[in-house]
């Protein structure tokens, strides 16, 4: 027996919608513009959204997580599972779904964007709108994928996006293009970081940075660490880790020829989501008295530099 739902006053609609899960509200939003407006009026939770290439979108709040996956066949439309994690297959283009969810649920924060270049056009459409709305993106992850022909277009987008917490870049970009990271969230991890040069390192404002397969040399790192010693430079930096073949024993870093370590020195340890530590490092002082622990190792497949800045609030120094 049908009932004319939209004839209910707004407070009653709100009470009804409280018992509908996001999948039902999404389907309802597709019925008409008026129903979508009614859902918006019915109050908002603090939903956040995640996007995973090529077509998965998740919205979540507290301990609730709803997963929308692209339907391959018409018979799968709106089918899904209510077992955790709850999921439903959608028929739309992923861009349409993404913006429908943003608008219907009044989402103003993106928890994560994860792309692997399988659907770059969709991603760039999403990125452009997020830029237009200046929406906060907590984490942005560029996943590993062999075909990265669109990589040249990614950095201009990244630099305009409001990424606040974490940027991770896994793939190996083509050498013939120039890539420049100009804005920095708190944490950065770049796997194939050959393109991340000293200019970008000197420009960073990160708390934690990890650069693998780097082209930075002893001279570059010497310049960076000397700059760090000046008061008020890199005030956020807590952890720097660099793997690179150009770190060698041919020239000094802060007047020390690598390897740089003193066996028997204490363990300096800090937790940034997960634990980072330096054992047998060498203390280096900033001109304002801040201490950092430096260690450079040349053995192993990739020479590595680790630098941990002591923060009395979260750094633990253990004698050995």
């Amino acid at each position: 027996m049908p009932i004319a739902l939209l004839k209910f006053p707004t407070d009653l609609l709100r009470d009804v919608f409280k018992f509908c899960d996001p999948f039902e509200l999404y389907k309802l939003s597709k019925c008409s513009k008026r129903t979508q407006r009614s859902i918006k009026l019915s109050g908002r939770k603090n939903w956040r959204i995640r996007y995973f290439d090529p077509g998965t979108v998740i919205i979540y709040v507290d301990h609730w997580l709803y997963r929308f996956e692209k339907a391959e066949k018409k018979e799968d439309y709106f089918k899904g599972s209510m077992l955790k994690p709850m999921s439903m297959r959608y028929p739309d283009e992923v861009v349409d779904l993404f913006f429908n969810l943003l608008d219907t649920f009044g989402i103003c924060r993106v928890g994560m964007l994860s792309i692997d270049f399988r659907n770059f056009e969709s991603f760039s459409n999403i990125a452009n709108i997020l830029i237009e709305r200046n929406m906060e993106i907590e984490e942005f992850h560029i996943g590993s994928e062999p075909d990265v022909k669109d990589a040249a277009h990614i950095m201009p987008l990244v630099n305009r996006m409001n990424i606040t917490q974490y940027f991770e870049c896994d793939p190996r970009f083509l050498c013939r293009f120039h890539y420049q990271l100009e804005t920095f969230p708190k944490k950065v991890f770049i796997n194939w970081s050959y393109w991340f040069n000293i200019g970008q390192l000197l420009n960073n404002s990160c708390v934690r940075m990890e650069l693998f397969k780097s082209n930075l040399s002893n001279q570059d790192l010497d310049v960076f660490l000397r700059k760090w010693k000046n008061p008020e430079t890199f005030p956020n930096l807590g952890w720097l880790k660099i793997y690179g073949k150009k770190i060698d024993n041919q020239s000094p870093i802060l007047d020390m020829i690598p390897p740089i370590q003193i066996v028997g020195n204490p363990r300096a340890e800090v937790t940034f989501g997960y634990r980072k530590d330096i054992v047998d490092g060498v203390p280096v002082s900033k001109d304002d008295g801040t201490v950092g622990w430096l260690k450079v190792e040349l053995g192993g497949r990739w020479p590595e530099l680790k630098f941990l800045v002591v923060n009395p609030d979260d750094t633990v120094i253990t004698s050995r």
Binding site: P2, I3, A4, K27, L28, K30, C31, S32, Y77
Partner: peptide, 15 residues
């Protein structure tokens, strides 16, 4: 239910 079924059950007019 699907959006079409919801439209019928809740008597939702089209745009």
């Amino acid at each position: 239910k699907s959006p079409e079924e919801i439209r019928e059950i809740w008597m939702i007019p089209t745009d």
